[in-house]
Design a protein around this nucleic acid. Structure first.
Lengths: 203, 203
DNA sequence: TTATTATACTACAAAGTGTTTATTAGGCTC
DNA sequence: GAGCCTAATAAACACTTTGTAGTATAATAA
């Protein structure tokens, strides 16, 4: 919700882009704790006061950037849904997300795989949990295909953590596999336990 | 390596404990970015200069605390290995770790499940990766028990991320399951895909 | 007891923060 | 293109935080 529709002034867009680039830039050189409004403004070649016209402080800026990230991914997802190609949804969604991440890998590597800013990982985690949850609700649970039964929330924690974590490791290792290949492996692994979750009481 | 053997002066131990308690305390009230050396010293009822006798700055203090955490878990692990009880190693290790976390849940909930300090999660991730890696090296790979084959590194990313993530979610939700029960579920889920990893080339 | 050493206290320069006011310059609308 | 609107700039301000001195005091270890 950071960039609403009446935000079209090119000066605003320019300044935000400068700030964003400067921040990503600085994050590759120094640790987050040492990144100040001073340094960002200096690197972005803008006045320090201008920064405060856009963001309350550095954490607020990071929060807004995380919002932008989620919005961009949502745009990718809506793109798929609008396409007349509903075959094998799981696949295409995952591949598209991984391709999007790979295309903006510089951004995602710093902000998602950085060992210092967990907000982005958390937001993505929530998104994946939503997807998995809605998918498992629509799924046909009448056939207990597996003998293994695990509480639904544990299975969702397990699956979504595995997803995000694998993507993060993939980024940290400079994407040694193609998005398509990784999507295929993730689907394989995920299917092994996605049918095990049931609503059961802990012993 | 923060608390070496000749560190027995009671004043040092007292000060470190005061700092640690103050930090955990503050983290429950305000966000990490707002926690300053000033505030820590004030809350810990020590002089601000004294803080600098122990830690370079706040990030350095966090780093040292993460070291302590890993050391404590290593102590738990060594405790098991020394016991004449090598039956079902996977189980007892996991249960012991979860019990240790549950016992110190206030500490771990703030530092591990906090959405703000990823260092602790990262360190634990490395530990789990080590355990999984060494285990899969010793495992008998002669029998391809599963038809599904996944590159070894992807399988390790997947499994270790799932482990840590599930524990973190468990903490964030105030441990709705007992350590024993969660350990059992994790073992179940993990076994479903632990035999799938092989050294294969990406297509 | 005596020597050691951690802590307290005071002070300091440097940097960063968040805000105000007035001014300049660029972009949008007619 | 002229004129209005608004963003970015610039200088200044009080305030907090940082990291490091030097010295004094109190607790600990031998």
């Amino acid at each position: 919700m950071s960039t609403t529709s009446p935000r079209t002034d090119r000066r605003v867009l320019r300044t935000r882009q400068l700030i964003r680039d400067a921040f990503i830039d600085l994050l590759q050189e120094i640790e987050l704790e040492k990144i100040t409004v001073n340094r960002i403004a200096e690197r972005a070649t803008i006045n320090r006061v201008t920064f405060y016209l856009h963001y309350r402080d550095v954490p607020d800026m990071i929060e807004k950037m995380a919002d932008d990230m989620i919005n961009e991914i949502h745009a990718v997802l809506n793109d798929i849904r609008s396409q007349p190609h509903p075959t094998d949804m799981d696949w295409s969604i995952l591949v598209k997300i991984l391709e999007h991440i790979a295309e903006n890998s510089k951004f995602y590597k710093v902000l998602l795989a950085s060992q210092r800013i967990p907000v982005f990982t958390d937001r993505l985690m929530k998104l994946i949990i939503d997807i998995i949850t809605s998918r498992s609700e629509n799924r046909d649970d009448s056939s207990p295909s597996s003998a293994v039964i695990v509480p639904k929330d544990i299975a969702i924690w397990y699956g979504s953590s595995a997803f995000i974590g694998t993507i993060v490791c993939w980024l940290r290792n400079d994407m040694p596999y193609t998005p398509l290949f990784l999507a295929k492996q993730l689907s394989l692994l995920f299917r092994l336990h996605q049918n095990t979750n049931q609503l059961v009481d802990p012993e």
